[in-house]
Design a protein around this nucleic acid. Sequence first.
DNA 1: CCGCGACCTGAGCAAGCGCTTAGGCGCCGG
DNA 2: CCGGCGCCTAAGCGCTTGCTCAGGTCGCGG
Lengths: 224, 224
Amino acid sequence: MVFVPRAEGPWRAGRAGRGMGAEPKRTEEWADVTPDAARRLVTAAVAAFAERGYHATTTRDIAGRAGMSPAALYIHYRTKEDLLYRISIVGHRAALDLLRRARRPGTDPATRLADAVRAFVRWHAEHHTTARVVQYELGALGEEHYAEIVGLRRETDAEIRAVIEDGVASGDFAVPDVPGTTVAVLSLCIDVARWFNAEGKRTPDEVGELYAGLVLRMVGHRAP
Amino acid sequence: MVFVPRAEGPWRAGRAGRGMGAEPKRTEEWADVTPDAARRLVTAAVAAFAERGYHATTTRDIAGRAGMSPAALYIHYRTKEDLLYRISIVGHRAALDLLRRARRPGTDPATRLADAVRAFVRWHAEHHTTARVVQYELGALGEEHYAEIVGLRRETDAEIRAVIEDGVASGDFAVPDVPGTTVAVLSLCIDVARWFNAEGKRTPDEVGELYAGLVLRMVGHRAP
DNA sequence: CCGCGACCTGAGCAAGCGCTTAGGCGCCGG
DNA sequence: CCGGCGCCTAAGCGCTTGCTCAGGTCGCGG
């Protein structure tokens, strides 16, 4: 059933010398964050938040992983919550853009829905650390930041709902309860961030493919 | 898409006098916890952990909600983590028993799967505060406690997988990828705890019914 | 060469954390 | 009537937290 991955190795204990990026694998997601120290801090924060959760992560953790002193964090970010907020914004926008890109006109609803789910799930698997923070730590945001994120989430919701409604209108889907099914589809995709394990036997592409098929079945689409 | 509910009212600030139960609605789940103070503490902890998360909850929070001083907590529970552990055990066992009860021999796989999903989802909706703690706070458990809980989770996993395998073997289901579909079904059900809102327009029964139908579609069951 | 801004550090502050301790009340069997 | 036990509190200990601040080092334009 799906396990929260545990912290395994020792903490990147302290200093550890200058000039090394923290968790250097696939961070093109944050490539446009400057200067370099700010980028190292944000990737360190993503790793720490995903592993321990926001509240269990200390500013000393984050700074240590980025190879800096705790004080350096506050040169680039106003507060610890500000760091979470920026991660949330970037993550939500990335996921939303993915969905919007799948909405190419001229294709039938089944293709659009499958493409959307495939892309959305792929992202949640591939960037499962970022996705974990984005999906499960938003309760730690401040009031206004939280409200802003909720706005983005409503847009995401609307994107999926629109495709399902299209399919129902065209007769391609048979869905007795559109709002309920929309919630279920989104919920299914989002939860990938919780259980996906990079060391597991499935690649993000495979999970995306599997889920696209499952969702088509959920909406009562008959394979041609 | 599903929102983490926020803290709304003011904290039950302090003392507030003796003899009042904390969050007194539907706590028969903890009816066999004695003495009374221990039960008040555990229900207070469930409410607090579900609302803020384990790490953001203080022992003063919990004790305050239960109408006691912080020190009283340590008469009934060894540590704050011990409280989380007991909640986890009770919750996991309750959910697992529910699944086992749905496995009545002599019924066809589709009925068994639908019954299991209905019951499992109903529980996650009805007891969504407990379920939230059970499903999303297990990372805060200590090493041995975590291992024990993982054991219970594996049993839950096996329970659902068995029903799906039965249906595939009997030809009632058409599932290309049994392990993947098992994960997806469980994931879908578990995530109910995250988005379900007691003030929302859907009752736990309605969600259970909806999800039972969706899952039957996912496994390729043809309605009679 | 100077001076300025960008970046970083060591030291540390006030507040809050989990948890302990010493002691007090009231109910019980003897 | 009393001693012990179950249950509770006020006080506070040692430590960690998010965050600040005075000061230092570097590269660069003038």
